[in-house]
Design a protein around this nucleic acid. Structure first.
Length: 260
DNA sequence: ATGGTTGGAATCCAA
């Protein structure tokens, strides 16, 4: 089973990129973030033509998450959640479903803007609620995958210039501690099961030729529960779509699991 | 220190 995550930064603009990449990479399950589309405008037909069914939780202009699954595998979306139980949040940032026996939780973590900003405070609070939610999810569904745009670089290897970046947003100790509180529950960064070197990034700023200069950060993650860790066969970052015309500022990340 | 780019909306906000 091949599972991917991609922050598309407007699905309306990126439908050609997404359908091209689906055709190239043939993932079984894809978690999307920043669709920026109301549910009524979700491109169900275009994705069906590409061979994928979808669930989605969107809003106008901001945020928005979706999960795609290949039609030819006979997958169904079961036990779908669009909110953290008990958290009343209009921002569409979480979507969970069970697909082929695997629990998939798609997250679009709050960016936070800057350390100390009210959005940063909201980010840390939101991550606490996510941690509590995931503690219950992993009990109920040991075969858990948590993936998406975490808006946190796990450590200095995941930042092009950690000295310059310092303890700014995406790298601040409280954010990294919030991520560690999640991974400490037995949710493993799949990319680091295979690759230990730095300079592997998933997001590059649109400005100043950042992609060409590989000035990026690795903030798009796929976490695997203990029960799936030994099934992992590969974890990759596909830089190719970032080279395409009018790209998202993020590129897709993938994990291959040795399960059907 | 500042500004650089993109998307979606409305001529500014979020990333």
């Amino acid at each position: 089973m091949k599972i991917a995550s991609w922050n598309v930064n407007s699905l309306k603009v990126r439908i050609p990129h997404l359908t091209q990449w689906l055709s190239d990479a043939h993932p079984d399950v894809v978690a999307l973030q920043e669709t920026k589309l109301e549910d009524a405008k979700f491109p169900v037909d275009e994705l069906a033509a590409a061979g994928y069914q979808a669930i989605y939780s969107g809003q106008k202009t901001y945020n928005g998450v979706a999960i795609l699954a290949r039609n030819d595998k006979g997958f169904h979306f079961e036990n779908v959640l669009t909110d953290i139980p008990g958290l009343d949040d209009p921002q569409r940032r979480i979507l969970a479903a069970t697909i082929g026996g695997v629990r998939v939780v798609d997250l679009y973590v709050v960016n936070g803007k800057a350390v100390g900003d009210e959005k940063y405070t909201y980010k840390l609070h939101w991550l606490e609620r996510v941690r509590d939610f995931l503690a219950n999810e992993i009990k109920r569904y040991p075969k858990l995958v948590v993936l998406g745009d975490f808006n946190i670089a796990p450590d200095d290897r995941d930042v092009y210039d950690p000295i310059a970046w310092g303890e700014e947003v995406l790298c601040s100790p409280p954010e990294r501690a919030a991520l560690k509180a999640i991974t400490d529950m037995g949710l493993h960064d799949s990319f680091r099961l295979f690759e230990q070197a730095g300079s592997h990034f998933s997001w590059w700023d649109y400005r100043q030729g950042a992609f060409r200069r590989n000035m990026g950060v690795r903030i798009d993650l796929i976490l695997l529960g203990d029960a799936l860790k030994s099934s992992a066969r590969a974890a990759t970052i596909d830089r190719e779509p970032r080279r395409w015309e009018r790209p998202s500022d993020h590129t897709p990340v993938t994990v291959e699991l040795d399960i059907e």
